[in-house]
């Protein structure tokens, strides 16, 4: 496993309350080096914090996205719950789901929400950001029962997706299938099609690759690849944006 726990070495990333409450022989200045060498993270617990969405319906599905969670597992479960019909043997389809994740799982959390929005459609979204406290227990690799507990804060995200309308004035609200004013004035006319139409797992598509005319590149056989590549970019960018 990767020993660089999230945010360990990145200077500046943990400027808030990154205190080390060590129950360890080694003093705290050396602690960071100690982590990089002989220690292994054995436990990571998130501190409880109140829900960022007060007043939600009880029984709302909360998907806790972890760093190693498989998107297909998460989505398989969440989609089944959101799509199931009242007629099915199970419960009625849920109206709301919350995806939460912190640290390195943040990107994955957003990806899950984006996939669900594309597949379900008509979902109202509310996004909340905050710091989350995390306790980590690190154990010495060199034998002995040296152990230290580290408290750190990591950014976390909570995304509420709802079939029922949400308060549009709430900061972080996003209406279904459109991009809000944050984006509109710049992308408005330019958005090719609703995101719902795109499939997520696009691979190489032949017709598309032919659009970017190859001939231009062949004009520079002698130049280094890097230069040729730059030229390729210059020539391609414009037509490409026109075509899209």
């Amino acid at each position: 496993m990767d020993l660089r726990g999230e945010y360990l070495p990145l200077q500046g990333e943990t400027t808030t309350a990154d205190s080390i409450s060590a129950t360890l022989p080694s003093p705290s200045p050396g602690a960071k080096q100690g982590l990089a060498t002989g220690f292994k993270k054995v436990l990571r617990t998130e501190e409880d914090s109140p829900s960022p969405f007060p007043g939600l319906l009880p029984g709302v599905l909360e998907m806790r996205v972890k760093e190693g969670s498989k998107i297909r597992n998460l989505m398989g479960f969440a989609m089944a719950r959101m799509q199931s019909d009242p007629g099915d043997s199970g419960q009625a389809g849920l109206r709301q789901v919350v995806f939460t994740g912190s640290g390195r799982a943040v990107t994955k959390t957003i990806t899950c929400a984006e996939i669900m929005k594309r597949k379900v459609g008509g979902l109202h979204q509310l996004t909340k950001l905050r710091y989350k406290g995390v306790q980590e227990v690190w154990e010495s690799q060199e034998g002995g029962d040296a152990e230290m507990t580290i408290h750190r804060t990591v950014p976390s995200i909570s995304i509420l997706l709802s079939k029922d309308p949400l308060d549009p004035l709430e900061p972080g609200y996003q209406p279904p299938e459109t991009q809000t004013a944050l984006w509109e004035e710049r992308e408005g006319a330019d958005v090719p099609q609703p995101a719902a139409k795109r499939s997520f797992d696009q691979t190489v598509s032949e017709p598309q690759s032919k659009r970017f005319c190859p001939q231009d590149l062949q004009g520079f056989p002698g130049s280094s690849k890097r230069v040729a590549h730059k030229l390729l970019f210059c020539q391609i960018r414009l037509p490409c944006s026109v075509l899209r």
């Binding site: 957003i110 594309r118 979204q125 995200i157 900061p171 609200y173 690759s209 590149l217 390729l232």
Partner: peptide
């Protein structure tokens, strides 16, 4: 803070390492 999320489509070019093969650029 008011956060929105979106999906961005990215394009990768696959350049043949051998310049002679530069017939069909793949993306």
């Amino acid at each position: 803070l008011a956060a929105n999320t979106s999906t961005v489509e990215l394009i990768d070019d696959l350049e043949p390492d051998d310049p002679d093969e530069a017939g069909e650029p793949l993306t």
